[in-house]
Design a protein around this nucleic acid. Structure first.
Lengths: 367, 367
DNA sequence: CTGAAAGCGCTAACAC
DNA sequence: GTGTTAGCGCTTTCAG
């Protein structure tokens, strides 16, 4: 694999000329900035403080093997020179980048966005930084996952994508610390955090049944997703328990999770010979699209058709009628996933198990 | 199958033998793993191909100073060994990390999420990776901005945060390549991409006026944001042009942009002695919250009160009634911002100017 | 064309 | 306690 470097000049140029990227434009070289040079190395700090680089390094890393007068002298020099550690160099040496990777299918989806917020929170709190990769569900993009792990020496990854879980089984990804979030395989040797999708879906449908519905449709998304398969199971469980025969034509599958996909599903729902009285969608965005489609068709929710969603994105309580749904603790999902990963990083021995977070049925106006 | 690898064997072997090129020839190399060892360095490739590391490096970087037989021999070894460049080492040497930073106030907001998608797209296409920092608008978090730039030797940044723009003026950030997105100061020596907020707001209000409204309220958010100030100007422009006296109590300011903030604003709107007949909110999320609040208060949109938003997030066309708003090209905003930055990186001399993208009035049901 | 060698900035043995 | 020093993996003169 040959990489092409297109970048112009940029030669390491010893101390001759100041390196660094001159900002575009005029007088790249400002007047000497009160001693705060662009690139200060540990060596310069050492000279300034009259100690060796090793000592500076010790101070930097909080080693207790440095006597007080020395320590503060070094500390002063660090401040005086405006020194910053070069994480690149440190990482190269320690083989630990303090970088985490988050792979997400679509941050445009509020559900995923909130999870990423949770991850971000945990990660920042621990002094790590987060690389974000949006895959768009495309498998080839997930290849970059492995590449980055190697290439950037990323310490670990949190993955919200379905396929990665599969790949992980046989690929070398297995040798890396990573945790699955939302999409997981409970039997795979990989930590995860998620909810009990089957039970959650079952409860949602049971609720619909309890409201007197027996003609309940199900709008699902890509079966590549584990949650899609599990929620389908839950849907069928509930029908079975209620003694309702499952009608294959009541189970619709759409591509994607966006509003439009929901709207499109409506047409098929309404074309059914025996029209359902309720719909359960695997995501709020889908459900909202469905409500929109129903409205366009002149039908009222929930009287003409009840609608139930999944996730409880903040939007769910804003639309009209407000959307009944199953709440997932998005932020927590991300937070816990990150913490799991971090713990695994701290102690490789710790055999971290998967955890399930609770879901909750939200009764609102749409069903 | 390969056993789950532990962090321990990844580390520099604290207690084990002093470092050195131990791995080069030792036993672990002959693992059953078809030669695909975890860490293959350029040196190993060199040995395998019977050339020097310099030559391997040349091949890696597409230098044309390598004769064909040699080149393909090296290429073969690279594949055979499963070699991957260590970007850390390369970056340390070249002082170029191929890492970009995106600073965003809140990815939970669909508006920002979409911009980030645009950024991600452009960045990935060019082989860069993106570090994502959610600041939550807190200034201290923005400090990390500068730190990362140094610390990780990030090549550049795209900033959606208001305060950074300010800081940039006097801080050393000025010496780094970065571009402002959405929030910018046209007079600052920093590239930017955004829309003409003042004109856009003016048009929105003019539209309201054209629909016969003269009692038009304005719900704004944090005035720390440039867009907030500019849209306020636009609002006032339009009133002035229409010969409508601006009533101070018609201009409301709320904290944040989420739905709840919008809902809260409604109370104040309804408490006004002379109730407005239309509201213009600076964001769709705010507008949707307002519609929700209005509905709760038993008022109809647009008959009792017309509502106009800003952004045109995908949600805007889903709610009921559908939301009239001013569309911003979110994805393009992010894409162009990233491209601007990348271009600046390619050619530091290029004095990249700011660019304005077009907005568009979306007439829908709410106003 | 290719190789030898000097570092990039930092950490961690191993001295002293 | 503190200093010396050997690299981490890579790019890039500078020789040959």
């Amino acid at each position: 694999m040959v990489k092409e470097r297109t970048r112009a000049d940029k030669r390491p140029a010893k101390k001759a000329a100041p390196r660094g990227k001159a900002p575009a434009g005029s007088a790249c070289r400002q007047s000497v900035d009160a001693g705060r040079e662009r690139k200060v190395s540990i060596a310069q700090v050492a000279v300034h403080a009259g100690v060796s680089v090793a000592t500076v390094s010790r101070v930097l890393n909080g080693s207790d093997a440095v006597r007080e007068p020395t320590r503060s002298r070094v500390a002063d020099s660090i401040v005086a020179l405006g020194y910053r550690v070069n994480q690149l160099a440190r990482s190269l040496r320690t083989d630990e980048s303090r970088l985490l990777l988050t792979m997400v299918p679509d941050i445009g989806n509020p559900f995923y966005a909130q999870i990423v917020q949770g991850i971000n929170e945990a990660v920042q709190a621990r002094g790590y930084d987060m690389l974000l990769c949006e895959t768009g569900g495309r498998v080839d993009h997930e290849k970059r996952f492995l590449e980055l792990l190697h290439t950037r020496r990323v310490d670990g990854a949190i993955c919200l994508d379905p396929d990665t879980v599969q790949q992980a089984q046989q690929s070398e990804a297995q040798r890396f610390p990573w945790v699955a979030c939302c999409e997981f395989d409970a039997h795979a040797p990989v930590a995860y955090v998620g909810i009990d999708n089957r039970a959650a879906a079952r409860e949602a449908v049971q609720y619909l049944v309890s409201r007197g519905h027996s003609r309940i449709a199900f709008v699902n998304s890509d079966m590549r997703f584990m949650y899609a398969r599990e929620r389908q199971n839950g849907y069928e469980d509930a029908l079975r328990q209620a003694g309702i025969a499952a009608r294959p034509d009541y189970s619709q599958s759409v591509n994607g999770l966006d509003f439009d996909a929901g709207q499109r599903a409506v047409a098929r729902l309404l074309a059914l010979d025996l029209r359902p009285t309720a719909v359960f969608a695997v995501s709020d965005t889908l459900a909202i699209g469905i409500m929109r489609g129903l409205r366009d068709a002149g039908l009222a929710v929930p009287t003409d058709m009840a609608v139930m969603g999944f996730d409880d994105i903040s939007l769910a309580s804003q639309v009209s009628p407000t959307l009944s749904t199953v709440a997932q603790p998005m932020r927590q999902l991300g937070l816990r996933a990150a913490e799991l990963l971090l713990r695994q990083l701290d102690d490789p021995q710790a055999r971290v198990k998967g955890i399930r977070l609770p879901h909750r049925l939200m009764r609102r106006e749409s069903a």
